[in-house]
Structure formats: C-alpha cells, structure tokens
C-alpha cells in the first residue's frame, strides 16, 4: 500500500501584520476529500491565516512551510498559487467597478487554459453554475461586487469557486451575512464542488454553517494558535458552551 499524501499542508506557520504576530505557529494536514473547519472567536487569527496562505502581501509569513500537492506555495505569487489550485473565498470581497462578473470570470478561467483554447463553452457553464446558486443571469453583466448585498457577494464568491474548480478551497466566513435560505444555497454550492479529490477548509465563527457542510475535523483557534482539535461533535459542543469553555480548559492545561 502506498502512503497517503496530504493534499494541503502547512507547518508551524507564523504570520505578521504591521509588525504584530497574529498567528503563532499553526500546522495542519488536509488529505484529498477531507473537509476541515477552523473555528474561533473574533481576532483569533483565522482570517489572517487564510490571507497569508493565499499570499496577501499585507500578511507576512515569517516562519513555516505551506505545500499544495507537494508544491511550495511560499515561493509563489498569489496568481501562481491560484493556478496551482489554491482558492480563497473572501470574507469581504472588494468591489471592482467597471469590471463585469462575466468578463472577470472569463479572464480567470482563461488564465487556466492554454492560450489558443476554445472558450465557447464558457457562457453555457457560467449560466449553469449561476442557476445552481440561484443567481439571476443579468448578474453576469453587473460590475463585480459593486453595490452587491452581503449575501450576493458571498454567492458570487462560491460562483467563482464553482467556475475555477480549485484543488483546495479556503472559505473565510462564507456564512456570515447570509440568511438561512441563502446559507443553504451557498452550502449546496460548496457540497456540489466537493469531491474525493479536493479539500475544503472552512473558517467560521459559528457552528451554523457546519450543519450543511459537514466537517471531518474541527480545529479551534485562539490567540493565533490551534488550542483544541476534534471531530464534528466539537463544533456542537462549542455552540453549546461557547469559546470561554475552551479558554478555561486550555488555561487549566497550562497550569498542569
């Protein structure tokens, strides 16, 4: 039997923003087909970790290693990481005035294909994926995130996920700002994308999303570190007892 290799792996990652260390040494292995969730209170470093993994220049990885499918992500600019199969659904997607959803997605899809590749299937695929996420077709002609509601922005992020089909998806607070109907639609979109070949890392404050996208593992992050790990049951426990419970528990551990 051959040894199973992780799809995505980061080791002892430290992240600095403006000279402040916001992530202090976290490690994780995600194997093909797995869904992991990072949960934690606000300011625990979850979003900073996601941004740093994707290569946001405002976040510096001062120490650690990041690999996707054996490729060293830290040697790559964000565009190369994306083409290698990494994806980040943003917590607050920025408006890009004057650039339509369709044109933007066309450029992004095109970047993945050979130069002279036929793009005639693009429109059809786009429409099908929009239908799957209950996004009206005229949205394709609107400027990306410009004047979109919070829920619309999140759906468009998942539309990008569906169109770009990455190997590894980091979903940063994709559930925030969604009402229950929108949450279900977005979760269905994520589940349609998910296969035994790709991986998902959900970053969330609340357990709510995990009712619809079932994680195999849950990691609790506090003050820039993973402080507790467990199965899907951990999310339920957190929902019940709150983050203070983990805080007390880890404090006790330190005392021992």
């Amino acid at each position: 039997m051959t040894e199973r290799k992780p799809l995505f792996e980061f080791k002892n990652v430290h992240v600095k923003v403006d000279e402040t260390e916001v992530v202090n040494g976290v490690s994780l292995k995600i194997y093909p087909g797995e869904t992991h969730a990072i949960m934690g209170p606000n300011g625990s470093g979850k979003s900073s970790l996601a941004n740093a993994l994707m290569g946001n220049p405002s976040y510096t990885i001062t120490k650690g290693e990041v690999y996707l499918d054996g490729e060293n992500m830290l040697e790559m600019e964000p565009d190369k990481r994306s083409l290698a199969g990494l994806f980040l659904a943003f917590q607050y997607p920025l408006p890009i005035p004057g650039v339509t959803v369709a044109n933007f997605l066309r450029s992004a899809v095109k970047a993945r294909r050979a130069k002279d590749d036929d793009m005639s299937d693009f429109r059809k695929t786009l429409k099908a994926e929009m239908d799957g996420l209950s996004i009206d077709h005229p949205f394709a002609a609107r400027y990306l995130n410009d004047g979109f509601s919070g829920g619309e922005k999140k759906r468009i992020e998942i539309l990008q996920l569906a169109m770009l089909k990455p190997k590894m998806a980091l979903l940063d607070e994709t559930d925030s700002g969604l009402d229950i109907d929108a949450l279900k639609i977005v979760a269905q979109g994520i589940n349609r994308f998910h296969s035994d070949k790709n991986g998902i890392l959900l970053i969330t404050h609340y357990q709510r999303m995990l009712n619809y996208v079932k994680p195999d593992f849950v990691h609790v992050m506090m003050r820039g570190k993973f402080v507790k790990e467990g199965g899907p049951g951990l999310a339920m426990e957190l929902e019940e007892k709150g983050y203070e419970w983990v805080e007390q528990e880890t404090a006790q551990k330190v005392e021992v």
């Binding site: 994707m54 946001n56 964000p78 565009d79 994306s82 994806f87 920025l94 450029s107 970047a111």
Partner: peptide, 17 residues
C-alpha cells in the same frame, strides 16, 4: 488599491493583468 490587485491575482490573473 493593493487589496483589489490581490483579489484579482488570487483568481489567477497576473499582477499586470
């Protein structure tokens, strides 16, 4: 805005693109 550039590059567009 460098965040706009990051958003687009995170989707596979080169920096100049």
């Amino acid at each position: 805005d460098p965040d706009m550039v990051f958003y687009l590059t995170s989707r596979g567009l080169s920096k100049s693109e």
